[in-house]
Simulated assay, not measured.
Amino acid sequence: MPSLLAVYAHPDDESLFSGGVLARNAAEGGRTAVVTATWAEHTHRAAELAEALRLLGVSGKPRLLGYADARVPDSAPGSPRLCDAPLDETVGRLVGHIRDFRPEIVVTHDAYGGVTGHEDHVHTHRLTVLAAQAAGLERLYPEAGAPWQPRALYLAAHPHSAVRALDGLRVTADDLWTVPDDRITTTVDVGPWLPRKWAAVSAHRSEARRGAAPGLLAGLSADVREQLLGTEWYIRQDLTSGGGGGETELRV
């Protein structure tokens, strides 16, 4: 299995958007890690993230950039909101993690920031696209370590055809940021990994208590949850040589 680094905006995004792929990759021996752009160490959500990664089989401590959530200023006391931090600074810090971990694949939000369109998700997409390319260029961010070029970037997305399944979350099509089906290059059946994925989502207990996605999902039947979480969709962008379409797994 390829080495895989997932970069997401908030604790719980990794489990909701890519929990199945992360669990599978780790279980089949692929080196797997997660960078989370917001929330500081020693906060309750950082602790929940650590538990979620353990349940997914991802070894090592969470990698936290430590910026503040756009909507929760006290998520990182003394640090700017992710969207307000200098772009060059945030990209450079992420380049450091890419060069340190040396992944073949990088996974992150799509340009819409996934179905919610959250501003932190959108900004994390932007900085990850820039960092994945910059990491391979030795004259950019030399202080961040020796250059390393990931082979592919996979953007987690939801196609228009998934809207009906999302009805269970009590949202309308106008609330969702989905992409045309023909933009999807990779559709992954993560049903075999759904128990681990759901356990990881459930580890984000504070989000469940406040009625965010983990809480909404907990109120649904197991069958509906499987319909919502049993497939993960991605848009592949090659960073080296070309790839194709119609994939059913992430590959280098």
Rank of each mutant, 00 (worst) to 15 (best):
A33W: 14
P142R: 02
G114T: 00
R45P: 03
R71F: 09
H125Q: 09
G113I: 12
G66M: 10
V34L: 10
H44M: 14
A131K: 07
D100K: 09
S79V: 15
T108D: 01
V34E: 09
L49Q: 13
T32K: 06
H118I: 11
D120S: 13
E89Q: 12
A76D: 12
Q133R: 14
R31A: 13
L56N: 02
R45A: 03
V34S: 04
T108G: 02
P77I: 13
S79K: 15
D74C: 13
Y67N: 05
L153A: 10
G66N: 02
K61N: 12
G114S: 13
D120T: 07
A144R: 06
E119H: 15
L55Y: 11
T128M: 03
D84S: 04
F101V: 06
Y67V: 11
Y112S: 12
F101L: 01
R93E: 08
G57S: 04
T128D: 07
D100H: 04
A76M: 01
A132Q: 01
D100W: 06
L94I: 02
T116P: 02
E89D: 10
S59D: 14
P103G: 08
D100N: 14
V95T: 07
W148K: 02
R54Q: 15
G66K: 08
D110I: 02
D84H: 07
R54V: 15
P80D: 05
E138W: 09
V129H: 08
E104D: 15
R81G: 10
V91D: 05
H123C: 03
A68C: 08
H125D: 07
P103I: 08
S75G: 06
T36K: 01
